[in-house]
Computed example of a mutant assay.
Amino acid sequence: MSALAHLPGSTGPATGPGSPPPARPGRRRLLPYLLLLPGAAWLTVFFVVPLFQLAATSLYDPTGSLATGYAMSWAFGNYPDAVQAYWPQFGRSFLYAGAALLVALLLGYPLAYAIALKAGRWKNLLLICVVAPMFTSFLVRTLAWKTILSDNGWLVGLLRDVHLLGADGRLLATPFAVVLGLTYNFLPFLVLPLYASLERLDTRLLEAASDLYAGPVQTFRRVVLPLSMPGLVAGTLLFFIPASGDYINAELLGTPNEYMIGNVIDSAFLVRLDYPQGAALSFLLMAAVLAVVFGYLRRSGTEEVL
């Protein structure tokens, strides 16, 4: 039987002089780690190192400047000073991001459900319509909303004609405009994960719920919503995290009264050149967002997202 293993048509292991040596078990175990090296090196150079540099900057002496230089004084007081000075902007950031998230859920969930389960042959076209705005620059999209919401624009004129807006009423430079801009710019990040989750939904479960005399509301609450939770949690996080740190919408669609913490960080680094305070605010924002994310994941109980 062992001689048959060396015949040309045999399926046994080839051990002739021209055959390659068998792979060593140790080399096979190292292969996944070797494949991770390029990505790990990229993250180390462009994420971990800048993060540590930002942490060090947040502890510099706040009395320094670019002209005189900054000294490492382990000034942990930069953090409470930053909170005391800019806590309204922190609260406004999470308030606006939360309000935009609620509006996006009211718009995005029915849209994702319709595309996944009702669109039929129009599914691909509708998905392109959802993604198409992202082909344009974020800044250009926001400037377009500035034109639409302007005091002399057609939308304000229409609302004034139907008496939904007063003669001196306006949409631009208001919290409404900032929330609207956040909703529009980040809506695809909510719709796409929801669509991916709903698209995997077995429609026979909906038929079974109907056969058991469940109404549309009960079917949604007992079947559709639980099965779409992974996409819902992922989409809300992908929406809320960038929205809470955004500053373009507040800058272009609001006034200083609507500024979010991102606007303060931008000003600290690029206008006031107060690097320690800007770095401290950045770390505080990251810590606050992480606390919200982990708390949300624990309450949602979605194992697939974790």
Rank of each mutant, 00 (worst) to 15 (best):
A3M: 08
L4Y: 07
A5L: 13
L7G: 01
P13A: 13
A14K: 14
T15I: 10
G18Y: 05
S19R: 12
A23Q: 12
R29N: 08
L30E: 07
P38C: 10
A40S: 14
A40D: 04
T44I: 05
F46G: 06
V48G: 06
L54V: 10
S65D: 03
L66V: 04
L66N: 08
T68W: 03
G69Q: 09
G69W: 09
A71M: 01
A71S: 11
M72K: 03
S73Y: 00
S73W: 00
Y79E: 11
P80Y: 06
W87G: 05
P88V: 08
Y109E: 01
Y109N: 01
P110L: 12
A114C: 09
A116S: 15
K118W: 05
A119P: 03
R121P: 01
N124L: 11
N124E: 15
V140H: 01
R141A: 13
I148W: 10
L149Q: 08
S150E: 12
N152K: 12
G153R: 06
G153K: 08
L155M: 05
L159G: 07
D161K: 12
D161Q: 14
V162W: 10
A167L: 09
D168F: 02
A173T: 04
P175M: 10
F176T: 15
F176W: 12
A177C: 08
Y184N: 12
Y195C: 04
Y195E: 06
L198Q: 05
L198G: 03
L201Q: 09
T203L: 11
L206R: 09
A208F: 03
A208D: 03
D211F: 01
V217K: 06
R221Y: 03
R221E: 02
L225R: 14
L227V: 01
S228D: 02
G231E: 03
L232C: 02
G235C: 00
T236A: 15
L237N: 00
I241H: 06
D246C: 08
Y247N: 07
L252R: 07
G254Q: 04
T255I: 06
T255A: 12
P256D: 08
N257Q: 15
Y259I: 01
Y259E: 14
Y259N: 15
M260F: 02
M260C: 01
G262E: 03
N263H: 10
A268R: 13
L270H: 14
L273T: 13
Y275P: 00
Q277H: 04
Q277S: 14
L284G: 04
A287N: 04
A288C: 13
V289S: 03
L290S: 13
A291Y: 02
R299S: 06
L306H: 10
